[in-house]
Nucleic acid binder design. Sequence first.
DNA 1: CAAGGTACTGTGTAATGCAAGGTATTAATT
DNA 2: AATTAATACCTTGCATTACACAGTACCTTG
Lengths: 107, 107
Amino acid sequence: MNIQFKKGVLELCTLALLAKKNRYGYELVNEISKNISISEGTIYPLLRRLKNDGYVTTYLEESNEGAPRKYYQLTEAGKKMGKELKEEWLTFVKKVNGLLKGGVKDE
Amino acid sequence: MNIQFKKGVLELCTLALLAKKNRYGYELVNEISKNISISEGTIYPLLRRLKNDGYVTTYLEESNEGAPRKYYQLTEAGKKMGKELKEEWLTFVKKVNGLLKGGVKDE
DNA sequence: CAAGGTACTGTGTAATGCAAGGTATTAATT
DNA sequence: AATTAATACCTTGCATTACACAGTACCTTG
């Protein structure tokens, strides 16, 4: 998979998944990996960034298996950011697809 | 506009535009800028990379105004690369959009 | 202790932004 | 005619940023 396409999109995906329900980091990696190949070392720094920027809060919860899970929860700012990013993404895709098709017509 | 979304996509757009007809650098900047904001300093290094990788060849042609124009022309490898990148892009977009919608259903 | 689930860190890569520089041609000015 | 301005065009260098990859560390169960 083309690495470059992912830039900026992982943040969008993360916010979108968290908009559905709270999740812990390892779970996010697995969910996203179903569609887009990523590794843990990519998600955790991203989550820390989101927390530093005030888009998510975290809380710990015990797990039946393994270490306690750190759940991530969207703040109001995070929800807003998620919506905006999604809009930007959809607009961006339209523009790119426009370039892919057109380009000959005029001039 | 979200800078990160552009990563990898500019190459795709460039190859797509060149697939329609040969163009010179400055023209490419203007064409792409109609949809996606970029600057010359971004496109020229990209074009050089494409040339080094054997995806395009170049030839000079005089211009009525200003310096002679360096036209960029796709090689066979470039055409192939363009098609592949486009496929990858379309697939990628589908997957991302899938994540944006779904995410709750299963599990 | 072994194994696997979970969280985190550090270093490297690669694409883009931005700013600045450089060349060539035409038009305006002197 | 010579200088200058303006425009079109090409190039380079440094900073930024997100992601990959590999490695560390903890916890729990068997």
